[in-house]
Computed example of a mutant assay.
Amino acid sequence: MSILVFGSTGQVATELRRQAPEATFLSRADADLSDPDACAAAIAAHKPDVVINAAAYTAVDRAEEEEALATTVNGDAPAAMARACADLGVPFLHVSTDYVFDGTGTDPWQVGDPVAPLGAYGRSKLVGEEGVRAAGGAHAILRTSWVFSAHGNNFVKTMLRLSETRDALNVVEDQIGGPTPAADIAATLLAMSAKMRAGQGGGTYHYGGAPATSWAGFAREIFTRAGRDVTVTGIPTKDYPTPAARPLNSQMDGSTLRTDFGIDPPDWRAGLDAVLRDLTV
């Protein structure tokens, strides 16, 4: 099975490269997502069996000032990819986000719950979801949350960096979600790809780490497992203002992914241990 991956250096793309080195990976130089037509042309030229989009505009705060660009990258490009895949008759897998929801309530989000993004990033990702569905081909949209790995910029690496010079930190405690290892997202995408190539599954799915925790709880676990003596004080979101609003509730119900593909939520604590080993802390 030939797999074409958009993205080469991001967290999920890096893990896909580790797990499927035989796949073809397109960097920004190969296919710039700010040029949706070029992305579609790349698919037509490669003629793969499966396409995975692991590239995105992920600067949540900057998106408030660059919504047009974010929408092109996160919305128009995936839609163009999905149409190209539909023309070839091959499955298209696309990574989306909990940010399509408004974060209200306390129950995990179901796939069919109403979407209501709080900011530009979430709106741009929702445009992508709608475009992928509208293309009419075999597709899977995988909404995930709080991605972390040993690569790129993420919460784990930020906490470890801060712990080098500080022994106490204030971290938001009223945002609840599931930290999700990029390695598990990659493995899930590959497993889904194989089954979708065989005609199984398709639609929108949720994939978030378990058990649910807060950012403060996540930080405490990072420091404990890394052997760092750092005191974490939980604070409310209002005490840590950001240009873009964050969902308070990012819990994701993964029951449809289990039903269609037999995939359960990952234990983020095991994933954290693996990341810490990678970072040799």
Rank of each mutant, 00 (worst) to 15 (best):
N170P: 08
G208R: 01
T224Y: 12
V5F: 13
G177H: 05
L189Q: 10
N170G: 13
G199D: 01
S149F: 12
I235E: 03
D174R: 03
L93T: 14
V127Q: 02
R83P: 07
V156E: 02
R220Q: 09
V232L: 05
D253S: 04
F148D: 00
R225P: 05
V147C: 05
Q175M: 09
E164G: 12
G112I: 12
A20E: 09
T144N: 06
T259H: 10
I52G: 14
A138P: 12
S2Q: 10
G131C: 04
V127R: 04
R197C: 14
A59P: 00
F218L: 04
F101Y: 12
A42Y: 08
K238Y: 11
P108S: 02
T144R: 05
L16S: 14
G103P: 01
A168F: 13
T106D: 11
S250K: 02
A55L: 01
A20N: 04
G271D: 01
P265M: 02
V115T: 14
G208C: 04
V232S: 07
A150Q: 03
N53T: 12
R246D: 09
L26W: 01
V275H: 03
I263L: 00
G217I: 01
A186H: 13
I43G: 13
A31K: 00
A55V: 02
A20C: 11
T204N: 07
E65G: 12
T204A: 12
H94Q: 12
G89F: 15
T97R: 02
A183Q: 08
T188W: 06
D30Y: 04
E129K: 02
I141K: 11
L26M: 00
A68M: 12
N154C: 03
S96K: 06
G112D: 13
D37A: 14
A216P: 02
L4I: 15
A183G: 11
D229A: 11
A86M: 03
N153D: 09
L257F: 08
S2M: 09
D260G: 06
M81S: 14
D239I: 06
T224A: 10
V5P: 10
D267W: 05
V90G: 14
G254Y: 01
V115S: 07
A79M: 00
S250Y: 08
L248P: 05
A191H: 09
G217M: 00
R28N: 03
A45K: 03
D113Q: 07
N74Y: 12
A183R: 09
A86Q: 03
L126G: 10
C85N: 10
H139R: 05
G271N: 00
A135V: 11
E66Y: 07
A187W: 10
V73D: 05
A245I: 07
D278V: 04
I235W: 11
M1F: 12
E15H: 15
A20F: 10
A212S: 09
S8Q: 01
S250D: 00
T165C: 01
K195D: 08
T237G: 08
P21S: 08
V111C: 07
L16T: 14
E173I: 07
V60D: 05
A134T: 06
A120Q: 03
T242F: 13
D184Y: 14
V95Y: 14
Q175L: 07
A140C: 14
Q175C: 12
P247A: 06
